[in-house]
Design a protein around this nucleic acid. Structure first.
Length: 523
DNA sequence: CATGTCACG
DNA sequence: ACGTACGTGACATGA
């Protein structure tokens, strides 16, 4: 079937063709003529609903399909598809093809009915699928020996901490069990309960232990233990096991239809949550290394969501800050605290930064107060002051709430839709949650659109110029590449321009580049 | 399988 | 009286 499979003249429709393309690629076949993908059609139409074929068939066709689990079983009892009785396997496979075509005939006209959705589907999601397949196949090289060395050190430290913790507690217990920690802290030692989990149990999360650590020695040790145990099990031990033994490369799965806002999700392993915020954690990044003869190059958009907020809100003051190249947090601090730009203290800038982040998330006075450790009334004053100085932003927030209520959805700059079924609901907290999501989605979603457009433009450029540079990872506002030494100057010169010109916004986009012999150095 | 926790943007 | 900043994925525990 190779000639038909590879032919661009023979159009194909499938459900999750990125997967099928990988299977064919394993046999040296480049799947061509990929015209439609029902997974992405469903995602563009209704990102908030399930996109598996069983759900789609029921929702759009009213058909109950043969489920994969019915054919192969599940869990430890699951058998390979090649073990399935031929008649059963045939029925399943034939239905799969039939349903896919019928779904496409149903979904495609719905996308064509909206120019915005059509743009997102044809110009963003379909071409992005190809780029993501390439990135997944590229993988990124892991230094397993370095992780093994770190594992020795961290393992030793964990044993020491375990001893100290059991001594302070007066008895041995499982430090990895929140329930047992609670028994020790709040039962045996009678420390105050700071907050409870959703199920009503006393919480032992980081915020609680930080608070208790002000007065007692044990919680601080538990925090140290927790953070090291997390690094150990999730990264230090896991990554080497996920690496291809022949190439030392790990190949994540970029899920294109998981995040409701249009962002990607990364899994098995998740390479979008590699530690960076603490020094201990950053050492993990030293184990992400370039291919032989290459450097790792990281290119990230600076403050992309705030820039998008300025663009969408058309706030003159905020636009001016970006258009004149100001440090936006410093500029915000100057406005809120009513001081000249050069007199802004580092503390004032820190406050402004928290407020700027809060705005993107549709913050409440309560949330801001909790984050800054101040009174709710003080937080409310900061918010009022901000909206006074940036009235365009205040209007945008209100406009978005109204739009969400009237349409039941909000849109990104490029026309991606995020549906908010709970925006008119009678459940107060859930409705308010939907309002915050409505405010956040256009910014997070537009940023996701922009970086996908950038990935498509950059990959096309790499191929046109026949470069050996390889795109490896996307982390929401960052792209990571393997770059041969003799292409580094070219990338430094061309990449920021490519990434910044994929759209013409009312603010400039800014990309900063780092280069190094591991991801930590490059970041 | 639910829960709690914690890693990222 | 309650909950309270958006979006994710993975791990360990314990029923």
């Amino acid at each position: 079937m190779r000639s038909w499979l590879e032919s661009s003249a023979h159009a194909k429709v499938g459900q999750n063709l990125k997967y099928d393309s990988h299977i064919f690629a394993n046999y040296g076949i480049t799947l061509g003529g990929i015209q439609f993908d029902t997974l992405l059609e469903s995602y563009v139409l209704e990102s908030h609903l399930p996109h598996n074929m069983d759900s789609l068939a029921e929702r759009h066709l009213g058909v109950k399909t043969i489920r994969y689990e019915e054919v192969c079983g599940k869990g430890v009892h699951q058998i390979g598809f090649d073990q399935v009785d031929l008649k059963i396997a045939t029925d399943y496979a034939a239905e799969d093809a039939d349903i896919t075509l019928r779904l496409h005939l149903e979904l495609w006209p719905q996308i064509q009915a909206s120019s915005g959705l059509l743009y997102v589907y044809e110009q963003i999601e379909m071409p992005a699928m190809r780029v993501l397949g390439i990135m997944e196949r590229n993988g990124i090289r892991i230094d397993s020996a370095l992780l093994a060395k770190q594992g020795q050190q961290v393992g030793k430290r964990l044993l020491e901490l375990e001893g100290e913790i059991h001594k302070l507690a007066g008895q041995p217990f499982n430090i990895q069990s929140p329930k047992q920690i609670a028994e020790i802290l709040f039962g045996q030692l009678e420390l105050p309960v700071i907050k409870k989990t959703p199920s009503g149990a006393p919480s032992t999360d980081e915020e609680v232990l930080q608070k208790l650590a002000e007065d007692y020695p044990l919680p601080a040790r538990i925090l140290d233990y927790r953070s090291l145990a997390k690094l150990m099990s999730t990264y230090i031990e896991k990554l080497p096991r996920m690496a291809d033994p022949k190439t030392s490369r790990v190949h994540t799965n970029f899920s294109q239809a998981t995040a409701v806002t249009g962002r990607l999700a990364s899994s098995d392993p998740n390479l979008q949550n590699i530690p960076v915020r603490t020094e201990e954690g950053r050492r993990i990044r030293e184990a992400f290394i370039p291919a032989d003869g290459c450097k790792l190059l990281s290119a990230d958009y600076s403050q992309i969501e705030l820039r998008i907020m300025a663009h969408i809100a058309e706030d003159e003051n905020l636009l001016e800050a970006f258009n004149t190249g100001k440090d936006v947090h410093q500029a915000t601090a100057a406005e809120i605290f009513g001081v000249p730009l050069d007199d802004v203290s580092s503390e004032q800038r820190r406050y402004a930064k928290v407020i700027n982040f809060g705005l993107i998330y549709g913050m409440s006075a309560f949330g801001l107060a909790g984050n800054l450790g101040i009174e709710r009334s003080a937080a409310q004053n900061y918010i009022a002051k901000y909206f006074d100085r940036y009235p365009g932003v205040a209007q945008y927030m209100e406009r978005t709430r109204v739009e969400a209520r009237e349409n039941g959805y909000v849109e990104t700059v490029f026309g991606r839709r995020l549906w908010l079924p709970e925006i008119k609901g009678s459940n107060g907290p859930r409705r308010q949650g939907a309002e915050r999501a409505a405010i956040n989605a256009p910014m997070q979603g537009t940023a996701a659109d922009l970086i996908k457009l950038a990935m498509i433009a950059v990959e096309n450029w790499i191929e046109k110029e026949q470069l050996k540079t390889r795109m490896l990872l996307q982390v929401h506002d960052e792209l990571v590449f393997d770059v041969p030494l003799d292409e580094i100057d070219l990338l430094k010169e061309k990449l920021p321009g490519l990434m910044c010109t994929v759209a013409d916004l009312k603010v400039p986009l800014l990309v900063s580049i780092g280069i190094g012999d591991n991801w930590e150095e490059a970041h």
